[in-house]
């Protein structure tokens, strides 16, 4: 594939980066993090890339009850860095290892995964289930920087907030809890056909899935099922007998059958429900497959 690319910039500061972004009205411009999708369809018409590599967006630090993760932190680092070795972030580590290509994990960044339009991603459901927030930066007036913190965007409408912004950090609420991520794919190196992320905190359980195929994103929090679980018990208590069947029943109404050329909607719905149940079993410390 041949890119139309005519201009490569590597700003040395956030301000410089935002200034470049501000003047990018006339030509198709993109921010470049790891660049693992640059040579994949959809970028033929790009004229200008702004490479973020020199920006100070690689920090991982705890601030209060938040883990602040710089947008340029790679998937490889999510897998290995001690900062992520918490039970709460188990799903995050698993999702980072999901697409099992070392060379891509080394380049692919948290910010890139948040911004990509490709639907078949591992990280977004985990971030949604963790209740992640995004710190966005935009060019403001007279060279100022406008900062905005948003909830992890679910759905196409919410994703519009990302337009024209630099995703600077992903903010993860820390605390006690256990996370899990389950994916299903055709081979070990494949985008997930279905996936599910679960995070259980003392305050309750959060579930997110991607009801997507390779071509369209449909990230979803499963609020009804979360409420069903919340209705059963005091936080932290054991689930009732037969919880799997009850959760499954709830999921089959809550998950739309979203099919594509790869699998039918019914199958994706069915297996996604199974993955949610297995991820829940994992956070409960129960056998996943009975």
């Amino acid at each position: 594939m041949y890119l139309a690319l005519e201009r490569y910039s590597r700003p040395a500061s956030i301000e410089e980066c935002l200034a470049l972004l501000a003047e990018a009205h006339d030509e198709p411009t993109a921010l470049l993090a790891g660049g693992t999708e640059l040579n994949v369809r959809g970028h033929e018409e790009l004229v200008h890339v702004i490479d973020l590599q020199a920006l100070p967006l690689r920090d991982v630090r705890v601030e209060g009850d938040l883990l602040r993760v710089g947008a340029l932190v790679t998937l490889a680092r999510l897998r290995r860095d001690a900062a992520f070795a918490l039970p709460l972030l188990e799903g995050l580590r698993e999702a980072a290892a999901g697409f099992a290509v070392v060379a891509l994990q080394n380049r692919s960044t948290v910010g890139g995964r948040v911004c990509t339009d490709r639907g078949d991603q591992d990280l977004p459901p985990v971030l949604a289930a963790l209740g992640a927030k995004l710190r966005l930066l935009r060019p403001g007036r007279a060279g100022a920087v406008d900062e905005q913190v948003i909830d992890y965007p679910l759905g196409a409408a919410a994703r519009r907030a990302l337009r024209g912004a630099l995703v600077a950090e992903v903010l993860l609420p820390l605390g006690e809890g256990q996370g899990a991520y389950r994916r299903f794919s055709r081979t070990a190196v494949d985008a997930p056909l279905c996936n599910a992320a679960v995070v259980r905190r003392p305050s309750g359980v959060r579930i997110a899935v991607n009801l997507q195929g390779p071509r369209a994103a449909h990230l979803k929090r499963l609020g009804d099922t979360e409420s069903l679980i919340a209705s059963w018990h005091a936080p932290g208590a054991a689930f009732p007998q037969g919880w799997r069947e009850a959760v499954r029943l709830s999921l089959m109404t809550e998950l739309e059958p979203w099919g594509d050329a790869w699998v039918s909607g019914e199958y994706r719905q069915d297996v996604t429900a199974t993955l949610v149940v297995r991820a829940l079993a994992r956070v409960l410390g129960e056998e996943e497959v009975l």
Binding site: T187, P214, A261
Partner: peptide
């Protein structure tokens, strides 16, 4: 895992290694 997936007009949909799945070392 391997197959050709076409749309209704005979256009191949899985024409990359990312979408056409052969076995890997794993």
């Amino acid at each position: 895992t391997e197959d050709y997936i076409f749309d209704g007009n005979g256009r191949l949909l899985n024409d990359t290694f990312r979408d056409y799945k052969q076995f890997t070392s794993l």
